[in-house]
Design a protein around this nucleic acid. Structure first.
Lengths: 214, 214
DNA sequence: GAGTGAGTATACAGATCGGTCTACTATGGG
DNA sequence: CCCATAGTAGACCGATCTGTATACTCACTC
């Protein structure tokens, strides 16, 4: 499975924020506040640990408004993850635009992750965390989670292609491993500056993969 | 933080299964069945998603027995994680005993993880998953989670020392990143044989770190 | 000015949550 | 014989969970 999952992003262009996703809910002012509150609470405390009453209260919204907009907690979870995914891809796209050399583009992903992580609590990757809580593949949020990881793998593979055309898939997977490892080690506080460490290892990997001259 | 967290395991000897842990509950026959059922359910469905009634029913035990033995659900969670940690360390120790060359010992960790993972559902690392659900550092299970990761990092560092005495800490962290990345990629099904892929990358890393002759 | 969409306020339903309680049984050791 | 230990059976508690209902307000638009 996951051989060529979803459409591979075009590395020569800016990857578009997933527009084909399951986003359906129109973001009225109240809905936006709900999404903002849910996003913060879910990320900080976990999905199952946060109830809809708390979300509504933090959003300064009644439960009726919440259910009028989203219909169910599950849908809020979907919107939470899809929104985070969308914002992450946009953030990453802006960073990739500023990097031109193939190696720099790979390292820009690690830099983006580090900067993205530093903007919030050190709780690691929301997709990895959500995957630990949502165990049913039939859950509507499951596709969002696996979709983002598949997209990231495809991105690394595309970024690796100019550096090692024959071994792009291999190199993409290795970069993915380092990146995920960095996210987890950072999120769990295993050692300091884990994402930067992963970046260094990626750099060394690129050196030995494509030759120090490239 | 986590500069030299906990005591570093002696790499020349078999690492002992954590005996200083928070284990307190005597395992009567009923308690053992509770722990077995809770372990399976927590791992498959997540901690918050599983109630004590279900655990008791699956264990074939009344709630009174469950609470007589464990006192609280939180304590069951602690025992669940501590038990899994203990069994993993014993499993790993047996594998490390059979490997003598420094490089083989490092790779034996990855092999052990792959074999350990294949024995159950592809849900990845129970500590990573638990960390996503237990967000309060004051929770009694939190120390078990971070303790295992700190122990694994210390183990990799010790295993790296004979290969690169001056850069053992650096190499240990790199191995840790690859290992965690492999666990996550496997658990989320990002691509097939993720742990084996991580093992290959670790092998390449050891080659370039200590020279191909060692 | 009627209607519509977005919102507040609040009560409520039914289920499930973690946890406690009483009453009883079986077993095995001093 | 006695008593502690480990267990079953099952009712019960208050709190919290997701989700729904009724009644009303406000703003904007056709």
């Amino acid at each position: 499975m996951s051989e060529d999952v979803k459409q591979a992003p075009d590395a020569s262009r800016v990857p578009e924020a997933g527009g084909e996703g399951p986003r359906r809910v129109p973001l009225t002012p109240g809905a936006r506040r709900v999404l903002e509150a849910a996003g913060r609470l879910f990320y900080e405390r976990g999905i199952h640990a946060v109830g809809v009453d708390l979300i509504a209260a933090e959003a300064g919204v009644t439960k009726k408004t919440l259910y009028d907009r989203f219909g169910s907690k599950d849908q809020i979870v979907v919107e939470y993850l899809a929104d985070r995914d969308e914002r992450w891809r946009a953030f990453l796209a802006a960073r990739l635009e500023r990097a031109r050399a193939p190696k720099s583009r790979v390292l820009a992903v690690f830099d983006a992750s580090r900067d993205w992580a530093e903007r919030s609590l050190p709780r690691g990757c929301s997709m990895i965390n959500a995957h630990a809580e949502i165990t049913d593949p039939a859950h509507p949020a499951y596709a969002v989670i696996t979709g983002q990881k598949a997209w990231m793998l495809a991105l690394f593979t595309d970024l690796a292609r100019p550096l090692a055309p024959r071994r792009a898939k291999q190199l993409g997977r290795s970069l993915m491993l380092l990146h995920e490892g960095g996210l987890v080690a950072y999120g769990m506080g295993i050692f300091p500056d884990a994402i930067d460490h992963a970046r260094q290892d990626a750099q060394a990997l690129l050196k030995s993969a494509a030759g120090p001259s490239a």
